[in-house]
Design a protein around this nucleic acid. Structure first.
Lengths: 201, 201
DNA sequence: TTCGTTTAATGAACTATGTTCACTATCTTT
DNA sequence: AAAGATAGTGAACATAGTTCATTAAACGAA
């Protein structure tokens, strides 16, 4: 009898109902302001129910993070078309920053927040690793063609990721207030272009 | 009679007692884990007392942030000795990252945490501005000598700050787990050197 | 010295949060 | 139909930040 299968399906459905509500609230108000009680109220179930499907708030957050990485990879995949690795690298930098600026809450979760990284550093980073590997391969291809002003690929990976992350992080955490706020987003994109120009040849 | 003066002195003393306890707890456990109740207990006063001297937890945090910026400027001042602006810039990048890695809690407060920036974006950034101006002047000097591979100073400021911040931020927020954890700190310093080499001439 | 006034200090109480768990109600299997 | 399994419940607990009526002490004027 397919009872077990149906139950499992229902369990998954319920999980998705919670996740969908959580995603909506999270994208609107951020993770901190998204309370378990709020989610419960939204889906018209009791608080306790949420804990049947998610161990704690962090597990909920992991699921959201996974969504974020999938979304990011969706953007990156498009870049594989570009055959010249330097072009690919430049567009990757741009796409990364663009993702960060257009998906602040996801970006926060994926790369800034403390919470999700406090535990199980493995499973949730499978998809995160995909994104990193994409950078890594592109950098590697650039190095092979001797088109990067770097000694080794490892250092280039770190430098480039650090760079694009830094721009997004400083901006979303409101530390760039000494720059002209009308032009700041354009300035950030310019900085990406200028720096990628400076380190490639 | 000097009663008023004495009272004011006592008030300042009490403020400092609170601040000292808060600093100790904060540097040991971070801001989130430092509770008002914890501070009160440590100085053997009641919770309410703390609210006489600090409007809320954010004001306490502002005071800590101020300390952090002062500490950072103490390091930066030493770099003024270097007359070659490119040397100064390179050492500045190194010093910035070094400050971040050696003072994680302060760095977190100053450049990563959401809390302090949610309100009064002015007063608390006077000292922060000093640090930024130091970078800005150094970059400006490099540009004047045509030693930077950048179109304009503004973009260079943004790029360089973004870069060093990104490295510290990714590391302290545990996002660099795909790198060899035994070498990662050295790799970060290497990345700083390699990138500053790449963008200067 | 005494007495009204000011104010530092108190800590119980309020709000909000994540989390747990004994209990109920419903569904499944025998 | 009875027994067993389990989804769902919501009161209760722990821990936060914050407020405020109340107390006690210090102060200054008479």
């Amino acid at each position: 009898m397919g009872t077990i299968e149906r139950k499992e399906r229902e369990k998954l459905e319920m999980r998705n109902v919670i996740l969908k509500a959580a995603t909506e609230m999270f994208l609107q108000d951020g993770f901190e302001k998204t309370s378990i009680r709020g989610i419960a109220e939204k889906i018209e179930y009791s608080v306790g129910t949420i804990y049947i499907y998610f161990k704690d708030k962090t597990e909920l957050l992991n699921a959201l993070m996974e969504q974020g990485f999938q979304k990011m990879m969706g953007v990156f995949k498009e870049l594989k078309k570009n055959e010249d690795p330097v072009v690919r690298l430049k567009k990757l930098g741009y796409a990364y920053v663009n993702f960060g600026l257009k998906n602040k809450e996801y970006y926060d979760l994926m790369f800034i927040m403390k919470k999700p990284m406090e535990m199980s550093e493995d499973k949730k980073w499978v998809s995160g690793m995909n994104a990193f590997n994409f950078l890594s391969e592109t950098v590697s291809a650039c190095m092979q063609d001797n088109r990067l002003r770097f000694q080794d690929g490892n250092s280039a990976n770190l430098a480039i990721w650090g760079f694009v992350h830094g721009l997004v992080a400083l901006y979303t955490r409101k530390r760039l207030i000494m720059f002209d706020q009308k032009r700041i987003e354009k300035d950030i994109y310019d900085a990406v272009n200028n720096l990628t120009d400076a380190i490639t040849k």
